[in-house]
């Protein structure tokens, strides 16, 4: 993916830059709001990572508002040290697609960037079914089949699986699952998400030869179709 990174802190910038390049992305960078805005308007990117507070009179929200004002719908991920719920709401209201607060784990940022990049591609007509490898989900009848065999899932388990399937091949973090599947925005002390994922695995993976839901150490989970 072609990514624009606008971040003034050199350490954070080079850290993110390096990580994204290692993950195989093509990254442009800017260290102030003016250059950032110039690049964001002049070039075509798949995703823009914006720091909220930038030197040079133009901050992240200004850039975002200018872009949206020009009907530019490039997905924008806001990066900020402002962790207030209100700040987050402000950022999303201005047209941001996701919000990551500093300090962050790189795996979290990468997972969210890839999820956003994917979303940019398939904004087409609503699907009625999803298929990954031998797994298929009927979104209307809420029926799940693997290898033709029907799997009974609770409504929440279905939503969890649906989210994993929609992001198949991508790492999804626990925080992402809590936010997107449960719509919760707090930090649980216990392993609530892990338990739900392991329950899902009991039904989706255990009765079959190969597992499709994998744990990614220090990051989260990934649903990878069986290679055959």
């Amino acid at each position: 993916m072609r990514i624009l990174l606008v971040e003034d802190d050199p350490t954070v910038r080079s850290f993110v830059l390096k990580g994204l390049k290692e993950a195989g992305h093509n990254v442009d960078q800017a260290d102030n709001g003016k250059d950032g805005l110039y690049l964001a308007i002049g070039e075509k990117y798949d995703i823009i990572i914006l720091d909220r507070m930038l030197p040079g009179g133009i901050d992240g929200l200004n850039i975002l508002e200018t872009l949206r004002g020009q009907k530019n719908n490039t997905p924008v991920l806001l990066l900020s040290a402002l962790s207030d719920v209100d700040d987050r709401v402000d950022g999303l209201r201005a047209g941001g697609d996701d919000y990551v607060t500093k300090p962050f784990a790189f795996s979290e940022l990468l997972a969210r960037v890839e999820a956003l990049g994917r979303r940019g591609h398939n904004d087409s007509a609503p699907e009625t079914s999803l298929t990954v490898g031998d797994l298929s989900l009927d979104l209307l009848s809420r029926e799940v089949r693997r290898n033709g065999q029907k799997i009974d899932l609770q409504p929440r388990e279905f939503r969890l699986l649906e989210f994993l399937v929609r992001h198949a091949g991508q790492v999804v973090t626990r925080t992402m699952l809590l936010e997107k599947v449960w719509d919760y925005h707090f930090d649980p002390q216990t392993n609530v998400i892990d338990v739900h994922v392991s329950r899902l695995r009991q039904k989706v993976d255990k009765p079959f030869e190969t597992a499709i839901i994998h744990t990614v150490r220090n990051a989260g989970y990934i649903l990878r179709p069986t290679q055959d």
Binding site: W182, Y184, T190, N191, V192, V195, H196, R199
Partner: peptide, 13 residues
């Protein structure tokens, strides 16, 4: 109900 659903699994675990 939602909170109970979320934590019921961890409790069982």
């Amino acid at each position: 109900a939602n909170m109970a659903e979320l934590y019921e699994a961890s409790a069982e675990d």
